[in-house]
Amino acid sequence: MSTSTRPRDAALGTGLGRVLLLVYGTFALSASARALVQISTRFSEAPLAYLLSALAGVIYLAATVGLAVGGPRGRLIALVSCSIELLGVLVVGTLSIADKVAFPDDTVWSRYGSGYGYVPLILPFIGLWWIRYQRPSRNRDQQA
């Protein structure tokens, strides 16, 4: 198998990880760009929603970088950002339904990411599963 020839610490960003890299990269770009437009043109309309847009952009960016860097540090970055992402999509998704006044304008995470085909809801689960699947101890077992 070709995977055995790859450097072990790069495994996070290869295989399925590289698919995640493309998807996370896309979301990093779209969430950040959206926040930039929202904050620069009409920040006072819905400050909370727009700041959350910006936060989402940063989280997706961090996850992308973590996956790309790999190794213990990349894993940690990816793990933390995917966890915040999961928390964010659940909390913001719930709040955007419960409290429409605080969220007059959409973020990536509004209504569990329905505006993005619910991909923002599924993505952190796949991300976290992948990080766990690629944990170093598993590779050590294989080597021993």
């Binding site: 070709s2 290869t14 295989g15 399925l16 590289r18 698919v19 493309l22």
Partner: peptide
């Protein structure tokens, strides 16, 4: 960069 089945999935997602 990904000459595996995942490379095909990348093209599909794209």
């Amino acid at each position: 960069l990904e000459p595996t089945r995942w490379g095909s999935l990348i093209l599909g997602v794209g």
